[in-house]
Simulated scan of single mutants.
Amino acid sequence: MSKQRVAIIGSGNWGSCIAKVCAENARKYSGVFEEEVRMWVFQEEVDGKLLTDIINEKHENVRYLPGVKLPSNIKAVPDVREAAAGANVLVFVLPHQFVYSTCEKLKDVIDKDCKGISLIKGLDFRDNSLHIISEGIEKILGISCAALSGANLAPEVAEEKFGETTIACKDMDDGPLFMKLFHTPYFDVTIIGDWRGLEVCGALKNIIAIGAGICDGLNYGNNTKAAVVRRGLIEMRRFGKTFFGGVHTETFFESCGVADLIVTCSGGRNRKVAAAFINSHKSIDQVEKEMLNGQKLQGTTTAQEVYHFLSARQKTDDFPLMTAIYRIVYENAPPETIATNLRTHVDL
């Protein structure tokens, strides 16, 4: 097999962090991968200099992952087509609302043997239906696309603090390649086959994290937040089993499931922004803009999409926690209703 060329499609804090992991492994497995790892960077200026130039000269993404040294074999590229040209492995790590428009630009520049892997935590909402992101990438590009998700706060991975992640492959023969590309002593990879369950977990846990943030904003304490996490996991599992075929219960106990839910409800940006929103007298979009330095929440968009999906099917009463979170954030429902909905027992 010829050496694999890797391209990272995205360069936020998580994109830059995973580029670091992939670049380290490209060097480690020099017989498998080309040393240079390209990273597509949406071009912007920082203190009068182009961000791509800063990354290539300083080996640091000073805007989205400041203070973390990136391997010198990462090449920041401002043109997505140039970044992806000739790649054998495309690592998608950008907000889910931009992934398909980005893929449309790549259809005629990728090789026929290219493989994809989605690190995008969201679902695609179109025509009142929800679709799996990796499956959408496959349809546009005509390639196989795996997915990675787990309890992976980017700053901690970048600082090489131990954590786990889960990769779901449609073709399990791709597992060894992805293991070499992503597994490190501090980033422990497990390979499974349930990509739908993995991606449902990655999308819905962000909604539940907003609920955890609402509890924190109300100073409700750890008992209430634990109830939100537990009820959230039940609703996540029920959603996956109800609307997506082939989802396995075991997936919800992998890093992509309960572990990711715990870490996101404890330290993720969705929790942090939601907590600030409760006492701000501002919209959550305003708070997001003020707090995240250009980064985007995934939980807010997903909460809207899931609510409209459930409403179209008259299923909102079957998912009282996710429904309450949406109404608090977007319909000015009293924040205290999150506890009211927790008291409502639903026989699952």
Rank of each mutant, 00 (worst) to 15 (best):
R126F: 06
L177D: 10
V329T: 09
H96I: 14
Y307I: 03
G211F: 01
I234G: 00
R313S: 15
T264L: 03
G268I: 00
A209L: 07
L119C: 07
N128W: 01
F309A: 12
L321N: 01
I262K: 10
N128K: 07
Y29C: 00
G193K: 15
S11K: 12
K3V: 05
I8G: 02
L106T: 13
M172E: 14
V37H: 10
Q286L: 11
R313T: 14
G122Y: 03
E138D: 04
V68E: 09
E35A: 06
A259D: 02
T300H: 08
V189E: 04
W195Q: 08
S255R: 09
I325S: 07
G12H: 11
I328L: 09
Y307L: 05
E160T: 09
A212F: 08
E156L: 04
L106P: 07
R126Q: 13
V80G: 01
E250L: 13
T301K: 14
T337E: 09
D111C: 14
A209K: 02
A303F: 01
I110L: 10
L153T: 02
T190G: 03
H248P: 01
N279S: 04
G86F: 07
A146W: 11
L153G: 02
N61M: 10
K107G: 01
A276T: 00
K58T: 09
Q314E: 11
T323R: 11
R231T: 13
I120N: 06
E254Y: 05
P176W: 05
A147S: 13
L310E: 06
I137M: 05
G10K: 03
I328H: 12
Y330P: 11
D194P: 10
P95I: 02
V32E: 11
I325E: 10
I207P: 07
M322P: 12
G86C: 08
M172C: 11
